[in-house]
């Protein structure tokens, strides 16, 4: 008798229902996307850091915008909202006024990165077991 395998369940910090709709059960592709996210995020985040350190707020807004899009593809819809708020503030506040928000954003980004690292590992194991 063929064993029925349970579906992959995404971490509770992620918007699981959206991810299920996005990947339509294709956990192999989800693994690829999570891997790409972990590769791309440091590159895009470096632009955020450079822009903040040089107080270039238009570029800071654009760079956070890019990260926001990236977060969406791995199910961090709440973090997308935080990025959007920060992005909006970039056009009205100065770098000093953004400091607290920036620190919060860094903390949330690091937490997100950690969760995706774990999810990526879980996906690899899950997909490995499938073979």
């Amino acid at each position: 008798m063929q064993k029925i395998r349970p579906a992959f369940v995404f971490d509770e910090n992620l918007n699981a229902s959206f991810l299920e709709e996005l990947f339509e059960g294709d956990t192999i592709y989800a693994e690829t996307v999570f891997e790409d996210f972990l590769k791309d995020l440091p590159v895009y985040w470096a632009r955020v850091e450079n822009a903040y350190n040089s107080k270039n707020l238009p570029t800071l807004g654009t760079s956070v915008h890019t990260c926001k899009t990236l977060f969406g593809y791995v199910g961090f819809t709440d973090l997308q909202e935080l990025c959007q708020q920060f992005e909006d503030k970039c056009s009205v506040n100065n770098a000093e006024e953004l400091r607290v928000d920036y620190i919060l954003l860094i903390q949330r980004k690091e937490k997100a990165q950690h969760i995706i690292e774990k999810e990526y590992t879980r996906l690899r194991i899950f997909n490995g077991e499938k073979d």
């Binding site: 592709y29 996307v33 990236l70 593809y73």
Partner: peptide, 13 residues
């Protein structure tokens, strides 16, 4: 599209 993941999704679709 300048974000590779977004472009990959689109191509796949």
């Amino acid at each position: 599209e300048d974000i590779q993941i977004a472009a990959d999704f689109l191509r796949k679709f």
